[in-house]
Design a protein around this nucleic acid. Sequence first.
DNA 1: GCATTAACAGCCG
DNA 2: CGGCTGTTAATGC
Length: 224
Amino acid sequence: MISAADLRRIAFWSHELTEEEFERAQRGIVEKLYAKGAYLCHRGDRLESWTGISSGLVRFGMTSRSGKIMTLAGLREGSWFGEGTVLKNEARQYDLVALRDSRVAMMHRATFFWLFENCVAFNRFLVRKLNERLGQFIALVEYDRTLPATARVARSIAWLFNPVLYPKAETQLEISQEEIGLLSGISRQAANSSLKTLEVKGLLRVEHGSITVLDIDRLRQFED
DNA sequence: GCATTAACAGCCG
DNA sequence: CGGCTGTTAATGC
């Protein structure tokens, strides 16, 4: 079972639970490690748990039949996902791959349903979360073809700093330029050049192995 | 043109 | 040392 401190750290929704609800959640979660490159699940798998990222970075996406990869979202510490699959009790429609060594929190299906049936705060969180992700996926339709590379990088990064999904996130995030490329759907070299552009415009600061966001609002809307 | 892969030197932790 | 970054050259759509 996950420690209380870890649960508080990676799940801001847990702060709104009563003591009883919190303990139920805690007892229903186990943590698991995935090495860089390992799949948490493949499309078509049954992954029974509702899932949160405890540390590391995971790519949420799919691979087309021709082998082209499509990234739907990058999942960082504090990301929770899989409620759609758990609620509908169906197979996963996407792949989850660890981009670096990652620790993942798995909530048992029964615990998820207990919270879903009994806890208003938990449901408020789910609705907020689904709403943000829906907005993100709508933006993805435009993003994929229309926007130039730098704008796609800007959006991929902005999503990792979504204030609704990660209300307590630091402005700095440990992420390499290669990982940013994987999440943005471009090469490391192109990611490097886009990051330089965004840095010159004052939207973020590029550091060795990490970035610091300076202006999340402009980053989200960046178009050229 | 624009983006990709490959290669490599240099830097950081 | 191993991983990440910055840059260039060759190649493809």
